[in-house]
Design a protein around this nucleic acid. Structure first.
Lengths: 217, 217
DNA sequence: TGTACATCAGTGAACGCGCGTTCACTGATGTAC
DNA sequence: TGTACATCAGTGAACGCGCGTTCACTGATGTAC
């Protein structure tokens, strides 16, 4: 957040002329990304949507990528919140927990396509945006926590590292979300829902790990 | 291919002024996509790379999306060829066959990032490009054939439909390729290779299907 | 074999467009006193 | 409490740029006769 000196960017009212242009621009960028993809938004159009002149955004963001990185960062925060809520509310039973988190993953991708695209398709370099990197790491941490539970319940030997299990879950969820889980004219129809596809995949995978099926306790 | 009357677009020499501008433009588009992503190429720049005036491409392609669709179509054809070769050369043993095809999948994504991006990230609508759709279907057919073998070897009951197994393989492979398998400054480092990650995932999944492990025959 | 003609791939100039970015400015806000 | 001042978010005009797209054209090629 080197582009502003405001120590608390989330303060709702800062007395700007606009009210809160920074927030409005992030909102506008999100709308544009949702409608046209990460490449389909421009600073100029975001300014227009926010009702300010094309020069105004430069008071808040160095360039378009900075704005995009901010959207992606917030996306990862919202993602983490959503996954964590799912994991916390999920049954202790490992397969059920995996299914609950998987559904939350797909729901996020479906309901927040702009966030998801900014997070995974915008090709933002990691290094210049440590906040983005950190937010991504925290979101992955939820999958990692889920993987710890699954790993603890696994009976096969040698037990695969929890990190690897987390990466498997992430990859499969991301693959299904990318290929089938979002509104997009380029996606193909599926003979089943993305949720069913993911659930089946997870159940087979957990079976392979030797995690006892639901209701077998 | 409604944009040209040539009944055989693959003929190598047609006596054009340029020689074969159509091919040169496809080549140029591929280079640009590889360097900057599907949104990073323009008709004008492709023309420049091919050494012709900016108006010349319009003799061959209606617009940028048509050119992109042609790249994606060829990408799917190359993908199908590569996957099919892997499947044909793979050991009959189902887990080994899956591993071989999985490696071919990742190798393609890594070595042909321009094709892969055009195929999966360009957001080209399916309907206007039946050739693209058909090429995609044929490529998926190879994964489907692999899934048939795996399904036949599965011991769990009820046996999951081969179509679903194919979709699982595709999703996981695509997820790993997208997240970790391509040269991109936005990817994170992994504590293992994408190939190892995919192989482990497949082995656990096949274990879950009740496919006998390699060497157990 | 030679000539006249038709075809059409590629030219190059031109256009309007929206973008990114800059600049001196203005005017609302907060604050020092 | 009131005034003078400093700050800085946002203005609006301007710029150069590259893009998509069009147009009448030109000139190489193939072919009818």
């Amino acid at each position: 957040m080197s582009w502003t000196r405001d120590p608390n960017p989330s303060s709702p009212r800062r007395g700007y002329h606009h009210g809160n242009l920074r927030e409005a621009l992030i909102q506008a960028a999100q709308e544009l990304i949702g409608a046209k993809g990460p490449a389909g938004f421009t600073i100029a159009e975001a300014a227009r949507l926010a009702g300010v002149s094309p020069a105004a955004p430069y008071r808040h963001f160095r360039d378009a990528e900075s704005l995009l990185a901010e959207v992606a960062t917030r996306g990862f925060e919202a993602f983490r919140t959503r996954l964590a809520a799912a994991l916390d509310s999920a049954p202790a039973d490992p397969p059920r927990a995996a299914e609950t988190v998987g559904r939350a993953y797909l729901a996020f991708a479906r309901e927040e396509p702009a966030f998801y695209a900014a997070m995974f398709e915008a090709r933002i370099a990691r290094d210049p945006y440590p906040d983005l990197q950190a937010a991504g790491d925290r979101a992955f941490g939820v999958l990692r926590a889920l993987a710890d539970r699954l790993s603890a319940a696994a009976r096969i030997q040698p037990r695969p590292p929890a990190l690897m299990i987390a990466l498997h879950i992430w990859s499969t969820s991301h693959g299904i979300a990318s290929l089938f889980g979002r509104p997009d004219p380029s996606r193909r129809p599926l003979p089943m829902s993305a949720e069913d596809l993911l659930e089946a995949s997870m159940l087979i995978y957990l079976q392979g790990l030797g995690v006892p099926p639901s209701g077998s306790a």
